[in-house]
Simulated scan of single mutants.
Amino acid sequence: MKVFSQSMSIIENAIQQTSTKQKVISQNIANVDTPGYKAKDVSFKSAFKSAISNVNTYKTDERHFDITPSNLGTTVFTKKNVTYNESGNSVDMDQEMSELAANQIQYNALVDRMSSKFNGLENVIKGGR
């Protein structure tokens, strides 16, 4: 018998990905004044691949999209097509702060969702009391 549904592992993976994104953004912000530093970003493709591979999906209508984990991978990469300042640094502080706020909102939503899953499990264990 499975105590936790597949959604718990999906949420856990998503929380790990937002944590990685937080670290990369923090590195970018910390190196805003480092000459020659190239800003980095995170690709969440492997988390998506992992989540999709753990979920059994089927189409109920031929117009639905197929969900397949083809050619996906997780990477931390150097951002391309960015403007460099006179020291060769490519960190845009406004963009980093915006991404930091968005990532924090996503993290909070995931933690809230996981908390509600545990609250539901606790409710079942206590017999609805």
Rank of each mutant, 00 (worst) to 15 (best):
Y107Q: 15
F48H: 04
T20G: 15
V82D: 04
M1S: 02
G127F: 14
N28Y: 02
A39G: 00
A51T: 08
Q22F: 00
N108Y: 02
P35M: 05
K21P: 00
D61I: 01
K126D: 08
Q104N: 02
N71C: 09
M1L: 04
T18R: 14
K21I: 06
Q22T: 11
T60R: 07
A30V: 06
T68N: 08
S43E: 08
E122I: 07
F48L: 11
N103E: 15
R63G: 11
L72K: 10
N54V: 00
K126A: 09
S90C: 06
T83W: 15
V82W: 15
Y58R: 12
E99Y: 05
A47W: 03
Q6Y: 11
F118S: 09
K38L: 00
S5A: 08
S50V: 02
N108V: 13
V55C: 00
V82T: 06
D112C: 02
E96K: 13
A14H: 03
F77D: 12
P35H: 07
K80N: 07
S7W: 01
G36V: 05
Q27T: 05
I25M: 03
M97W: 09
L100D: 09
Q22G: 09
G127W: 12
S7Y: 00
V32E: 00
F77M: 12
E96G: 03
K80R: 12
S19L: 02
D94E: 10
T57Q: 10
M114E: 15
K79A: 06
S115G: 10
S46Q: 03
R113Y: 12
T18F: 06
K45P: 07
T74A: 09
A39K: 13
K79C: 01
A14W: 11
S9V: 08
S26E: 09
V76M: 13
L100V: 11
A102N: 08
I29F: 05
K38I: 00
Y58T: 04
I67A: 12
S46P: 12
T74H: 09
T60L: 04
S46W: 04
N71A: 04
S5K: 14
S43I: 08
E122H: 02
K21V: 03
M97C: 05
I105A: 15
Y37R: 02
F65V: 10
A101L: 05
D33A: 00
H64D: 01
V91F: 10
V82G: 12
H64M: 07
E96Q: 10
I11R: 06
A51I: 01
S9A: 02
Q106W: 08
I67P: 12
G127Q: 11
G73M: 06
V42P: 02
L121G: 04
K59C: 01
E99R: 13
F48N: 08
D33Y: 03
I25W: 03
S98E: 10
Q17N: 09
N103G: 13
K2N: 03
D112Q: 13
V42N: 00
S90V: 08
N103S: 12
L110V: 10
I67V: 15
V82N: 14
S53G: 07
I52D: 02
N28E: 03
T20R: 06
L100H: 03
I105L: 13
K2Y: 13
